[in-house]
Amino acid sequence: MTTPANLLRVEKGHADPEELAAITAVLLARAASQPAETSSDAPSTAGWRRLERQSGFRPSHSWQG
């Protein structure tokens, strides 16, 4: 169970209550600004490329840019 005492943990150093409140406000603001997940029938694709499946050289005129 998450209680206010263990909601955030400082891994290294010491954080004042004001610093913890500031980072909590930033994290909550970022979470609130994320768009709601939409359900679609289209499959999702990865936003990154698997470099081990790419050739080492791609010419400048390649269509795979």
Rank of each mutant, 00 (worst) to 15 (best):
M1E: 12
M1L: 11
T2S: 12
T2N: 10
T2I: 14
T3Y: 12
P4L: 02
P4T: 01
A5T: 13
A5D: 13
N6Y: 05
N6P: 06
N6C: 03
N6Q: 04
N6I: 07
L7K: 10
L8Y: 13
R9V: 11
E11C: 02
E11R: 10
K12H: 14
G13S: 02
H14K: 11
H14D: 04
A15P: 08
D16H: 15
D16V: 03
E18W: 04
E18S: 13
E19Y: 05
A21H: 09
A21P: 06
I23R: 15
T24L: 14
T24H: 13
T24N: 11
T24V: 12
A25T: 15
A25W: 08
A25H: 15
V26G: 02
L27Y: 11
L28N: 15
L28F: 08
L28A: 14
A29E: 15
R30A: 12
R30L: 15
R30F: 13
A32F: 08
S33M: 10
S33L: 07
S33W: 03
Q34R: 15
Q34N: 08
Q34Y: 13
A36C: 01
A36W: 04
A36E: 13
A36H: 06
T38Q: 14
S40Q: 05
S40T: 13
S40C: 01
A42N: 05
A42G: 00
S44A: 09
S44M: 03
S44W: 03
T45G: 02
W48G: 03
W48R: 07
W48Q: 04
R49N: 09
R50S: 06
R53Y: 14
R53M: 06
R53V: 01
R53D: 14
R53C: 01
Q54I: 01
S55K: 12
S55D: 12
R58M: 08
P59R: 08
P59C: 00
S60P: 08
H61Y: 11
S62E: 04
S62K: 03
S62P: 08
S62V: 00
W63C: 00
W63V: 02
W63T: 02
Q64L: 03
G65W: 09
G65A: 07
G65H: 10
G65S: 09
